[in-house]
Computed example of a mutant assay.
Amino acid sequence: MGKIVLSMSMSLDGCMEGPDRDIGWHRVDDELHRYFNERCAGMGAFLEGRVTYELMEGFWPTADSDPAAPAPMREFARIWREKPKYVFSRTLRQAGPNATVLGEVDPEEVRALARRYPGDLAVGGADLAESFRRHDLIDAYDVYVHPVLIGRGKPLFPARDTGTALRLTGTRAFGNGVVLLAYERE
Rank of each mutant, 00 (worst) to 15 (best):
12 L>E: 03
13 D>C: 09
13 D>M: 08
14 G>R: 11
14 G>N: 10
15 C>S: 13
16 M>A: 13
17 E>T: 13
17 E>W: 01
18 G>E: 09
18 G>H: 09
18 G>D: 10
21 R>C: 08
22 D>R: 08
26 H>N: 14
27 R>D: 09
27 R>K: 15
30 D>G: 10
31 E>P: 13
32 L>F: 10
35 Y>R: 11
35 Y>P: 02
36 F>L: 12
44 G>T: 07
44 G>M: 08
45 A>T: 12
45 A>M: 09
46 F>I: 03
48 E>F: 08
49 G>E: 05
50 R>K: 13
53 Y>K: 04
54 E>Q: 14
54 E>M: 10
57 E>R: 11
57 E>Q: 14
57 E>G: 03
57 E>C: 02
58 G>L: 07
59 F>S: 04
60 W>K: 02
61 P>N: 09
62 T>A: 14
62 T>E: 15
65 S>K: 15
69 A>D: 11
72 P>I: 04
73 M>C: 11
75 E>V: 11
76 F>D: 03
76 F>S: 02
76 F>C: 01
77 A>Q: 11
78 R>M: 05
78 R>C: 05
81 R>C: 13
81 R>Q: 13
81 R>Y: 08
82 E>T: 13
82 E>N: 14
82 E>S: 15
83 K>W: 06
85 K>G: 03
87 V>Y: 08
88 F>T: 03
90 R>Y: 02
92 L>Y: 10
93 R>I: 04
97 P>C: 07
99 A>I: 01
101 V>N: 04
102 L>E: 04
103 G>W: 01
105 V>H: 06
108 E>A: 15
109 E>T: 15
110 V>M: 01
113 L>N: 01
114 A>D: 04
114 A>S: 14
114 A>G: 12
117 Y>Q: 01
117 Y>L: 00
119 G>L: 02
119 G>N: 06
122 A>R: 02
122 A>W: 01
127 D>Q: 14
129 A>H: 12
131 S>Q: 15
133 R>N: 12
134 R>W: 02
